[in-house]
């Protein structure tokens, strides 16, 4: 099987689905690039190149560069979805979700419920999320943890190229609104990715490491950070289950609970600030449903309750890293 970057894997997923389903289309800022310019068309493919080549292949009717108007982009995508299309919208950086929040949390998320189950809104909104490039406080947030709290939305957080491709295909085929968060540090990472189309079902966690001493649950790029932390504990004879839920809504509670029942220790790791977030959510779920299995207090490793800072040293202090994860694992074993 060939190695592919997450960028190429996502690009392939879009190509598969655009070929398969003529109701799919892409809409967003600079997703092709070059409209109204003096040079080449389709030279951009979004800021990280994920949609490159779609315009050339599928034409201007289905690959729509837009003005800078996030509310209208997301609103138009969900309106088209209500009206029978299957759009894939792109909001460059997830921090810009602030601009189109109403269309996401009051409109697309609620249509089906408000309309008595008589509508479907098969829209996907893709975002670049996360910190690590000194992009500072308005380009570096995760935002998926906030969106997980909104009923009616499905939320996807791939941690590698293989999952990204399968999850994006599932997202496009899904009949509900799906928010799809691509961590900016992952586009260049690669692993084996099949050439053909495949789905990865929502609400099914992956377990990239298996062990006996503790359960580590992590999201998006933090899965990779935790894998490093766990691997470096092997020399001390410590082994862990590492659970990557892959979707935060729906959440695979079962895999987490089964693991904690076996290990008795839980560490939850996320790059978002701590309050009302995913780590607290999972800690509460486990405390309620597997209290008897716990041998030590649950550990949460998160960013601090601050915006994302610019200076690299501050950003490093902000982000959870392998050292912090190791310390948390060891704390449950102390």
């Amino acid at each position: 099987m060939p190695d592919k970057t997450m960028r190429d894997a996502l690009n392939e997923a879009l190509h598969h689905e655009f070929e398969r389903d003529p109701t799919t289309f892409a809409i967003g800022e600079d997703i092709a690039g070059g409209r109204g310019g003096t040079g080449e068309l389709d030279c951009t493919g979004g800021v990280f190149g994920v949609t490159r080549g779609l315009l050339t292949k599928f034409g201007e009717e289905r690959v729509l560069d837009t003005p800078i108007s996030e509310s209208a982009i997301v609103g138009a995508a969900s309106g088209a979805a209500l009206a029978g299309m299957r759009p894939v919208a792109e909001i460059m950086f997830s921090s810009f979700i602030g601009v189109c929040m109403d269309q996401i949390i009051n409109q697309m998320a609620k249509f089906r419920y408000m309309f008595g189950g008589k509508s479907k809104c098969p829209v996907v909104v893709r975002f670049v999320c996360g910190a690590g490039m000194s992009a500072a406080a308005q380009h570096s947030h995760t935002n998926y943890q906030m969106m997980t709290s909104v009923p009616g939305l499905k939320v996807v957080v791939p941690s590698n190229a293989y999952d990204a491709k399968g999850l994006l295909i599932s997202a496009i085929r899904d009949d509900d609104p799906v928010l799809f968060f691509e961590h900016m540090l992952l586009f260049q990472t690669s692993c084996e990715v099949p050439d053909e189309a495949y789905e990865i079902p929502f609400g099914e966690a992956a377990m990239p490491r298996e062990g006996d001493d503790a359960t580590v649950v992590a999201f998006s790029n933090m899965v990779n950070v935790c894998a490093n932390a766990i691997d470096s504990l092997a020399e001390k004879g410590i082994t862990c289950d590492l659970i990557d839920p892959r979707t935060t809504s729906p959440l695979d509670e079962e895999t987490i609970l089964e693991s904690v029942e076996a290990t008795g220790r839980l560490i939850v790791v996320d790059e978002s600030p701590p309050r009302c977030g995913l780590t607290a959510d999972i800690a509460a779920m486990v405390a309620q449903k597997a209290f008897g299995a716990l041998k030590a207090p649950i550990q949460q490793v998160t960013a601090p309750h601050t915006p994302v800072p610019f200076a690299p040293e501050l950003e490093r202090a902000y982000l959870p890293d392998a050292e912090k994860v190791k310390a948390a694992i060891e704390a449950t074993l102390a």
Binding site: G98, A136, A137, Q138, H139, A311, P312
Partner: peptide, 30 residues
């Protein structure tokens, strides 16, 4: 990215500001 920068290195290029000069900030959100 210096701690001695105009915004203590917290904002960087897209968030330079100096309220005392009436400069209410560059802005990362278009």
């Amino acid at each position: 990215g210096s701690s001695d920068g105009l915004c203590k290195g917290r904002g960087g290029s897209m968030h330079v500001a100096d309220i005392s000069k009436g400069m209410l900030g560059a802005n990362g959100i278009v």
